[in-house]
Each structure stands twice: as C-alpha cells, then as structure tokens.
Write a protein that binds this DNA or RNA. Structure first.
Ligand code: MN
Ligand code: MN
Ligand code: MN
Ligand code: MN
Lengths: 228, 228
DNA sequence: GAAAATTGTTAGATGAGTCTAACTTTAGTA
DNA sequence: TACTAAAGTTAGACTCATCTAACAATTTTC
C-alpha cells in the first residue's frame, strides 16, 4: 500500500509528464518545486520510488514514470476528480471549495468505493473544473496541441492557430476554415497523405502541406494502464 | 489539527469510557489492548494527549477524557457513522463492508463536509449497524442500564430485568408488567417519590421500592460538548 | 575550454509513532 | 505485612518524511 506521500509524488509526476506535451521526464528540482519540498527530500524519495519500480531513474538523471507508477498516479487523479464531482454535484459545494477536501479524499484506497462512486455519479466525464476524469483503467482524454497531419482518422479536433503566411491564410479563407473551427478527420490516404476533413457541414480534401501547418488541439486518450 | 493516530486514541477512549456504563476512566494497558499497540506506546501517547489537554492523567494513574477530548473523539465517531450510512444507503455497500472504509474516511477533517453529508443523508439517527450517530454538537443517544427510579420524567425505557423475589414478581404480574415491556415515566412526586408510569395503554403509580428494583435501559443523551 | 550557474546528492538532525527490553510502581494474596 | 503478579514507565532503537548545510556533477556562458 502506498503512503499519502508516495501517492502525492506519483500524482505530481503524472501532471508534469503524462499531462504535459513534449515532456516525458523531469528533473528532481522541478519535481521538488511542484511538491513544495526541498530537492534533497525529493532526491531521496525518487530513489525510494525507483526501488519500488514506480519510476525510472539513474543518479543525476531525469525521472519518469514506469507503467505501474503512471497507473497508480492516474488513479490518484481519478479519485481526486471523482470526489470533487461528488462534492460539487451532490453536496452543493461551490466550484472553489472542492479542491482542498479532495486533496484528502483522494488518498482513500478502496477501489470498490471509487467504482461505486463513479456509478453513483453516473460516470461523469469531467470534474467541476472541466478537467477530464480518468476511467477505471487509468485512461484519460487529454487535449493535446498538434498539427492536423497528426490527428488520427475518425477523431475530432479544433483549430487553434494557423501559420502566418499570406498565401496560406488566403487559401484557408477560400475553403472557409478559421480559428476555433471544429474539424473531423474523415480519411487520410497512405499513398499521398491527402486528408479528407469535414467541418461545418462541408467536406474538403487538404494537402499534407496544409495539414502540417494547421495547429489544432485534439483530445487524446492517454493510457497509463500497465497492459495497454 | 489532530493526527490520525491522536484521533484514533480519542475515539477509543470515547468507546471505552463515555459509551461504557460505570466506567469513566481507564488504564493504559486496556487502552493499549483496545488499540492493538503496546502499553509503552500508549503510555507515551497519553502523556502527549495530556499536554494537549485532551485527557486527564497523572503518572501511574487512570486516563479520562477532558470535555475537549471527548468532543473531538465524539466527532470522529460521528464522521465514521455518517460515512458508513453513506456507503450503505447511497453506494449500495453491504452491512459488513462499510466499517473498514469508514475507518479511513473518519479522518477527513472538513466540518462543512460532514454537515453537508449529514444533510444529504437526511440527518440519519442510526448507522447501518443500528448505532446512534452523534449530532453536530457531539451529543448522542446511548442506551444505559439503570433502575426505574433513575429514569427522568418524560423519558421512555424498557424493562430488562427484575429482582428475583416471589412477592415482587407476584406484584408485577398483578399490575401486568414483564421483561421487555416499554414504559414511560409520567411523573415523580418529590415528596414521597411515588412514580406514575404508563405502559401498554395503562397507567400505574408505583412505589420507590418497586422502582428501585426494576432494571431498565433508557436512551440517555450524552453530551460531549465543551460548553454543556 | 575554463568559470560560473544550475542541478542534484549526501550527511546529519528532527519529530512522530512505533517497537523491545529493562525497570518501577501499584495492587492483590498468602 | 511481605511477596508476587499486574500495570505502567523509561531508555534506546527503528522507519518515514522532512529539513539544512556541505559537497559533487552537469550544463551554460563567455
Ligand atoms: Mn494529496
Ligand atoms: Mn479539479
Ligand atoms: Mn481510525
Ligand atoms: Mn457502525
């Protein structure tokens, strides 16, 4: 059984790596800062977590979660967000009051309790702050910034930025695409990477050149489960 | 803020003293046994609780709760029983499953959380095991064994034992009173202690001699509040 | 490539809560 | 009353999570 402290380390690591684009490992100093403890303390604890196979780590190196550590950290976040949802929607707590209480409740271990609570709340997808709630397998939908080229076929995304070139902007305008538009990727040809998208009732085929330069956010299912 | 451990000591002390007839103080050995720790450990901790004015204690003496300690211990029991009720009646846990989870939940401190939970559960009077739930002031109804003479006017009680004397039993039989009868004390004259009782639709006036020898249980409101 | 800045580790200390082993006090009994 | 048994305390040790202070490695900057 993990201690409160160990769980808080794993939770912080999930937030700093799994929930962060382009960062899959982190230094001891940043970890310490995020937990509001001294680097010396974090350094010791990281060694202990490594001994328990919850993190990957070599002296003077970076820290990253093992699949087991990621799953356990994700479960702390699941518990936190489900309790926040309970406090908000069943006990009439306000938006701002729920976090501190959930910081304590997140460490109650019974898995059955959390699954029953999930069911009682009718399997909510988001907590009162709008953050996604991991499912019982430790999977969560996280918005990731990427280019349209990287969005999987069948997925939805939202345009958040366009490369600032006059030609490019003109072209977008012509096909009726702008910031904040929601787009679904219908198909992508393996031969020439032409991508078929649908948006606002319309359908269009776009080139890889366009798709590479269109920045979007897409809710990506992150699996922190051991056997996935 | 009290630690989990300190709260567990106070809870045990309430159960061993407040909830126990004729016992208002207890030895370090019994306390240790009830918490499944060694007497040496309990001895140390009791000194610490005394320093915090939560127990009365002198070296080699008995331990008893101060009003403050009793209130805090009672609150742990309130939280425990409210969470048990929640698990049982809202999350469909069985009778037998709720205790272990409540052992963890009882240490979540937010007072607002517990009062909201109480309201959400519609102010239950008993937990799934049938035990009374202390109110927000730390008051609880506990059944106490006493004689009919000691029951306050206006209170209900139940006959649990009668003194075994042939004359006495005959007399009881004559007025139609037996084990398990529920009785209400209607009046007690200060002059001669004659007690008027009602039971089974009937009313009777009984002598102090009879009342002294009729053993009953009566739900007594125990106040562990500081200012009561 | 050397100096400086940043990052990370180790050693030693602390407080909480626990233990065992040895000792002391109190209570019960012959 | 004196002896023995029970109850209670103290001393010393251990683990966990934290700290500070001193040191070591790595990275950045010039
Ligand atoms: Mn936490
Ligand atoms: Mn939240
Ligand atoms: Mn407890
Ligand atoms: Mn109960």
């Amino acid at each position: 059984m993990l201690s409160f402290t160990e769980e808080n380390y794993l939770k912080a690591l999930v937030q700093l790596t799994v929930f962060s684009e382009d960062v899959s490992e982190i230094g001891v100093n940043s970890l310490a800062k995020s937990l509001d403890i001294k680097p010396a303390t974090a350094s010791d604890m990281v060694r202990k977590l490594k001994d328990k196979s919850l993190v990957n780590y070599e002296k003077y190196g970076k820290v990253s979660l093992t699949p087991d550590g990621a799953k356990k950290g994700m479960m702390v976040i699941r518990r936190h967000r489900l309790w926040e949802t309970f406090l908000y929607s069943k006990l009439d707590f306000s938006w701002g009051e729920v976090h501190d209480i959930a910081e304590e409740l997140e460490h109650i271990h019974s898995e059955k309790l959390i699954d029953k609570l999930d069911e009682f709340l009718d399997f909510p997808e988001f907590d009162p702050h709008g953050e996604a709630i991991p499912n019982r397998y430790g999977e969560i939908m996280i918005p990731f910034r990427m280019t349209l080229s990287e969005v999987e076929v069948g997925k939805d995304c939202k345009i958040i930025a366009v490369k600032d070139s006059t030609d490019f902007l003109k072209y977008l305008d012509k096909i009726g695409l702008t910031i904040n538009d929601r787009v679904r990727v219908i198909n992508r040809e393996t031969f020439d990477e032409l991508t078929t998208i649908s948006y606002d009732g319309k359908t269009a085929v776009v080139s890889p050149k366009l798709a590479d330069n269109l920045f979007v956010v897409c809710a990506k299912c992150v699996k922190a489960k051991c056997d996935c």
